[in-house]
């Protein structure tokens, strides 16, 4: 585990590195440890000819290990595409993405599948769970697909902090939306992935459930030293991250360390102009 302590949080340093909307994107900070994920000159074009859309327009971005990072941007800014390409769910038109030191573009579908299984965890916005399996079976699903057993200590710890111990035998249809998302989060954690990608994990939740889930993700980074990259359009959600990257038209236009809801909101307003 890294010797670097978790970054301090709070409003005090807000705006430190928050660039104005007109400022050029900040260069990637010199990494003290290898980044958990990164994109280099990443281009993703959907369609062709007149209808072609450049969802990613030569993006350079890195996400540090053991940090909670958020990606923000308006609809169509390319934030979900970036997440999918970083996670090995989609392929770039050109450029490269890495998980740790592994370049994804050269992997076959089978190798990508194994990479997702071994090194990546996912939390999606909705329909995260297999409806025929109990909560516990859903949590251990990536491990059992890989034919591995869960580390009992870790499993217990994860279940404890998610507060799911009395819902483990229930099917997803018998759980609330917040509980379902916590099961998804527990599933992402329990296989000890190198990085967890969360795509609008609070998008379908009420504010209380959303807050609980975000607190849980925060603790996963602080207590379990996980790495999380989350796409969100919600400034409150982003405020739980260590760092926020802002995207527009397929490029990184700004970024901010130790964000607060207000500071994020400001940047979002500027970007919206």
């Amino acid at each position: 585990m890294s010797s670097i302590p978790p970054a301090p949080r709070g409003g005090g340093t807000a705006g430190d590195s928050a660039a104005g909307p007109l400022a050029p994107p900040a260069p990637p900070p010199a990494p003290t440890v290898a980044p958990a994920a990164r994109a280099e000159a990443a281009v993703k074009v959907y369609g062709r000819g007149d209808t072609a859309v450049r969802a990613l327009d030569g993006i350079h971005v890195e996400f540090a290990a053991q940090r909670f990072s958020a990606i923000m941007g308006a609809s169509g800014s390319g934030k979900s595409t970036l997440l999918h390409c970083l996670a090995g769910l989609d392929r770039l038109t050109s450029g490269e993405t890495y998980i740790g030191a592994v370049a994804l573009s050269r992997l076959s579908d089978y190798q990508l599948t194994l990479l997702r299984r071994e090194k990546v965890g996912f939390i999606f916005q909705s329909l995260n769970l297999v409806p025929t399996l109990s909560a516990l079976d859903n949590i251990t699903l990536p491990l059992s697909i890989a034919g591995r057993r869960a580390d009992p200590g870790l499993l217990d710890a994860v279940i404890r902090i998610t507060g799911l111990h009395d819902r483990l035998r229930h099917r997803p249809s018998e759980l609330s939306g917040g509980q379902q998302q916590r099961v998804a989060a527990a599933r992402a954690l329990v296989s000890r992935p190198e990085i967890i990608f969360a795509d609008e994990p609070t998008g379908n939740l009420d504010s209380r459930s959303g807050g609980e889930l975000l607190d849980f993700l925060r603790r996963a980074v602080d207590d379990l030293h996980q790495t999380i990259v989350m796409v969100t359009h919600d400034p409150f959600a982003a405020s739980h991250a260590d760092r926020v990257v802002f995207l527009a038209d397929g490029r990184v236009v700004s970024e901010m360390r130790s964000p607060t809801t207000d500071s994020v909101l400001q940047v979002v307003r500027h970007l919206g102009d």
């Binding site: 579908d109 194994l114 299984r117 329909l127 409806p131 699903l141 990536p142 697909i145 890989a146 599933r187």
Partner: peptide, 16 residues
């Protein structure tokens, strides 16, 4: 479809 996609996303191979 969605369930199968989810399983594939979290690491189920085509063969599986």
């Amino acid at each position: 479809t969605r369930e199968l996609g989810l399983l594939r996303a979290i690491g189920m191979t085509r063969g599986q």
